[in-house]
Design a protein around this nucleic acid. Structure first.
Lengths: 350, 350
DNA sequence: TTGTACGCGTTATCAA
DNA sequence: TTGATAACGCGTACAA
């Protein structure tokens, strides 16, 4: 490995001069600059970041902790983070907790992994990351950052509810409201809901969004039109019948996956989505375009969440104020975007 | 940040002793050891890896370059890499090239991004990574590693065809053969193929696999039963009709996505997959379980590819032989695994 | 305009 | 069993 020393020796200058040239400092002769630059090129010299960082106490590195990179929302969030890092000249030290693989489907109700997170964060600190972005795969409150964390940390997708760490989250309430408003605009009044688990923040916020529109429209919202699901396909399947009994004209599922289950059951009953009954989903996963008919759903602002989270972390690093986060920045919600496909029928009287 | 120096001072020992204790060296009194360990605990001291690495010239870090983390195969490969790193005590410096996002659908036929790769790899080297794993999102030959690379590098999913760098790839030939063998076992003899682009290595290998079975069964394979696709849904859709004209009883698509297109066209024609005609796919993407009926397909050994690639990199690092790779290790193929669902009909005469 | 010398937090080599 | 001290590669006062 060629070092700054070698460059200096070859050019008969001191290492200080070489260092100055590399870092674009003024006060260096044009002639020496050229000579040095040339030999740097020739020897294919690259400054050793490790040494540099040791000196500057800045690693220009963000530690990214992902609960499970194989979860559907993780790659897009990470994509947003990488975009931001690329722009600001940061590197990424990735920690994949593999929670889903290690603890199975319901790891997010499990707190066994908390010590593991602490350990991994400590590792990242030991590696001298300048900041941390934690990416959850289920939206929930998570107290995973140690009290004495000495670098800025931001939560992406989940909530911290801690004044020290901002959360960048989905605007679930508005997202669900938009879906329901669309359903209303197509003439639907009796709308069935397949929700997520009631203890989930997603679920609660979205339910609030649903009610917002019913209230706005002056129509009472009936509790019996809500069936509790668990985000999985089977729960959509199982919930369908009771919703049908309620004579709903449309079913809003809080995940595309559950909508898939609704499709399954509807198919068995010989009912065609978008024709005999309307269905809408949530998440806008690629697979929903393969449903027959393609599902009307709303996209999670995953990329944006990652980007914004990282941006906040870097802003705090560079402003180096690691204090409390002002109230208005504690939870930053990003909007979903509705995608209309063919699963919702227009039942207005012409 | 508390350093080794502080620990030493507090304990009235030299930093050398503290260092020895941390690194489990022998020849240190039990009493001093305990005292030091206790203050380390108290002050919550963590060794600075940066400084350590500067000295040891080992960063215990793998540079992972992913062409696009949002591509469907990337997360699982990265998952395999992280599993391996976790086991061997390595960290991951992640570089997401964002090729798909930057250059669109057909970036893999584009060489504009080569300088970018070189630059990113140089960055990783500057960050002192001990090795590099490059993750492609389309299987192809890629000469992206610079000649003078001074750390071990391994290609995951793509081919290097270079004696210096091993490739860990999908066993496409065997994978396709297995699908065709299954189709044969269900009585199919006239089999249509929706292939990938003919210049793709995937395509060629899989076509070879198809022929292997026809040859084995002593049945001539007809070229006109192959339609060239582009991996995308539309190409499956467009290819269906001409295959139907050939009176095929089954269609093997080289991607689940294209199989989706076939389903689309079949649906329009009122033909039911798994009943009127059989369909099989490739990749085993989650969405294929949402097709109606669920698609019989074969899974790519993504996780294993990532794991194996990383394992090789680390083995080379720790053996620190960075020379040529022995012939038998140049291309390591991992097997696919067939998943039978409901899209293939048994047409044997009972 | 350039060079010297020191320090960043470690590990490693000796000597005590 | 312990301690001084010299590296590691770089940035930066300060001196020249």
């Amino acid at each position: 490995m060629v070092t700054i020393k070698e460059i200096a020796k070859r050019c008969n200058v001191s290492i200080a001069t070489v260092s100055n040239i590399i870092n674009g400092k003024p006060n260096v002769g044009r002639e020496t600059r050229e000579k040095v630059l040339k030999t740097i090129e020739e020897l294919n010299y690259t400054p050793n970041y490790i040494a540099k960082n040791l000196k500057t106490r800045r690693s220009k590195t963000i530690g990214v902790v992902v609960e499970d990179i194989t979860a559907f929302c993780a790659p897009d969030i990470v994509d947003g983070i990488t975009k931001c890092c690329e722009e600001k000249g940061y590197h990424i030290l990735l920690t994949n907790l593999r929670l889903y693989r290690k603890f199975g489907e319901s790891y997010y109700e499990n707190e066994k992994f908390f010590p593991m997170i602490q350990k991994e964060i400590k590792e990242l600190i030991a590696k001298q990351v300048d900041g941390i972005v934690y990416v959850t795969t289920h939206e929930r409150v998570l107290k995973c950052f140690p009290k004495e964390l000495n670098v800025p940390a931001v939560m992406a997708y989940g909530y911290t509810r801690s004044p020290k760490y901002p959360s960048i989250v989905v605007d679930d309430r508005k997202g669900a409201a938009e879906v329901i408003r669309y359903l209303f605009s197509m003439g639907h009044r009796r709308i069935g809901i397949v929700s997520g688990p009631v203890r989930s923040l997603h679920t609660r916020e979205r339910l609030l969004g649903v009610q917002d529109i019913f209230t706005e429209q002056g129509i009472p919202f009936e509790k019996k039109c809500v069936v509790e699901g668990d985000w999985r396909r089977g729960s959509g399947y199982r919930g369908t019948d009771s919703l049908l009994e309620q004579k709903v004209t449309a079913i809003f599922c809080m995940s595309d996956i559950m909508a898939g289950g609704v499709y399954d059951r509807l198919g068995e009953l010989g009912l065609i989505p978008g024709k005999d009954i309307s269905v809408a989903g949530f998440d806008d996963r690629e697979l929903s375009t393969y449903y027959k008919p393609p599902l009307t759903t709303t996209a999670l602002p995953l990329f944006e969440i990652g980007y914004t989270a990282c941006e906040h972390a870097i802003r705090k690093i560079e402003g180096s104020d690691c204090g409390e986060v002002p109230e208005e920045l504690l939870e930053i919600a990003r909007s979903c975007s509705l995608t209309v496909r063919d699963s919702v029928k227009d039942i207005r009287i012409q």
